[in-house]
Amino acid sequence: MAEFSTSIKDAGGVNVVYLKGYLDAHTAPVLENTFSNLIEKSKYSIVVNFKDLSYISSAGLGVFMAFIEKIRDNSGDIKLSSMSDKVFNIFDLLGFPLLYEIYKSEEEAVNKFSETKKLEN
C-alpha cells in the first residue's frame, strides 16, 4: 500500500503544506483533512509544496478543486510549488496552470502572498 503524509509549516502567516508519497483515491482523505483543519482555523493562505510527492492521481487533484472555492471566497489562495516535471505534466495536461498559480520554489509562492497583501494595503 502506497503511503502518503502531509506536514504543515507556518511561514509568517502563510501555511506551507508538504506532501509526501503517493496521493491517490485511497490517500486523498488525508489531504482533505489537512485542508479542512486549516479552513477550520481560518487559515486561507496556503502554499502546497510538491517536492516529495511521487505520484498524484485524478482523485488527488480533485482535493484541490474541493477546497479552492471556499478559500478564494475568503480572499485566500492555494498556490502550488516545487513540482517535479512528472507531477507538473499531470497538472499541465488538465489545465491547472490556468486555474492555479504554480511556482518553481516554495519561497516564491510564499512571497507572492505577502506581495498581494502589500498591494492591498
Binding site: 478543486m65 488538465l94 489545465g95 491547472f96 490556468l98 486555474l99
Partner: peptide
C-alpha cells in the same frame, strides 16, 4: 490543443 478538464472551471476561463 489547450483546454481545461471538464468540471474544473465553469467560468469564461
Amino acid at each position: 490543443p489547450s483546454g481545461i478538464g471538464l468540471g474544473l472551471n465553469f467560468g469564461p476561463q
